[in-house]
C-alpha cells in the first residue's frame, strides 16, 4: 500500500477575519499525481501557499514522517518539497542558467548540481537554447518551464504546482503538461492546483474539488470527470 507523503489535517487559512481555507483535510500519497481543482477564489492557491509555509495557517501538515507546519518556508526545499509559485515567479533579471543555479541555492555539491542542470536541460531543451538569455525576456511558456526547471534543481520528492496553465496559449499549455507528466513518470509526487479542471483531471490520478474554502468532492480523476456536478460546474457541460 502506498504511503502518505503529504497529509493536511484541518488546514485553515485566514486573511484577517476572512477564512479562505476552512479546515480542510487531504492526503497525497508517494508517487501520486493529485490535483486540487476549483473556481477562482475557492482557496486553492492559499492551500498550496500554506503547505509551502509561505503564509500562516492553523491545523497540521505532515510531510513524510515529519510535521512541517512550524518549519520555515526556506527549509522545505532541502527536505525535498518544492513549490512552483503562481504566476511563474522567475527571477526576471537573471539569466536562464542563473535561475536554475538559484534552484540549487541550498546545495553545495557542485558536480551533482552540474549533472542536474544537464538533466533539466535534457527535459526542457528550449531552456538550453536560451541559457544566457535574461529570464524576463522569455515567453510566458518558457518562463513556466524555467520555473518548473528551477524547482527540479532542488531534487524534489514532492512538487507543488500552482496554476501552471495560467495565462498561456492552449498549445503551450499542452507542452507544459507534457513536461509535468514526464516529471511524474520519473517518480516525483505532484500536487497540482488548477482552474482548468479537464486538463488537470486528464493528467492526474485523483482529484479534490474545492469550493469556497472547503473540499466538496474527493475521488479518482475518472470518477470526477464523469460526475454530473463536476461536469456542470467545471467542465462547462
Amino acid at each position: 500500500m502506498a504511503q502518505a507523503l503529504l497529509e493536511a489535517l484541518n488546514l485553515e487559512v485566514r486573511y484577517g477575519g476572512i477564512r479562505a481555507v476552512k479546515g480542510i483535510s487531504f492526503v497525497v500519497e508517494t508517487g501520486e499525481m493529485v490535483c486540487l481543482i476549483g473556481a477562482n477564489g475557492a482557496g486553492k492557491t492559499s492551500t498550496l501557499k500554506a503547505l509551502a509555509r509561505m503564509i500562516p495557517s492553523s491545523g497540521e501538515i505532515h510531510y513524510g514522517s515529519e510535521r512541517i507546519d512550524a518549519v520555515p518556508s526556506h527549509a522545505l526545499i532541502s527536505k525535498g518539497l518544492a513549490l512552483v509559485p503562481e504566476g511563474r515567479g522567475v527571477f526576471a533579471r537573471l539569466s536562464v542558467a542563473e535561475n536554475l543555479a538559484m534552484g540549487a541555492y541550498h546545495r553545495s555539491d557542485g558536480a551533482e548540481i552540474a549533472a542536474d542542470t544537464e538533466r533539466v536541460y535534457g527535459l526542457l531543451p528550449r531552456l538550453k537554447e536560451r541559457m544566457t538569455q535574461v529570464a524576463g525576456t522569455l515567453s510566458g511558456g518558457e518562463q513556466q518551464m524555467l520555473a518548473i526547471g528551477r524547482a527540479l534543481m532542488g531534487r524534489p520528492k514532492l512538487l507543488l504546482l500552482d496554476e501552471p496553465s495560467m495565462g498561456l496559449a492552449p498549445i503551450v499549455v499542452q507542452k507544459v503538461f507534457e513536461v509535468i507528466r514526464s516529471i511524474a513518470a520519473e517518480g516525483v509526487t505532484i500536487l497540482l492546483v488548477e482552474q482548468n479542471a479537464r486538463l488537470a483531471l486528464d493528467v492526474c490520478s485523483r482529484g479534490y474539488v474545492m469550493e469556497s474554502g472547503c473540499i466538496t468532492l474527493a475521488d479518482t480523476a475518472a470518477n470526477l470527470l464523469a460526475d454530473s456536478r463536476v461536469r456542470a460546474a467545471y467542465l462547462g457541460e
Binding site: M54, H74, F91, A147, G154
Partner: peptide, 20 residues
Amino acid sequence: RAWVAIREDEIAAKACGIDT
C-alpha cells in the same frame, strides 16, 4: 545572489531555500 532573488520575487526566493 540571494539579495537579487528577493528583489525579483520573494516567494520564489523562499521556495529556493533562501532565508529571506
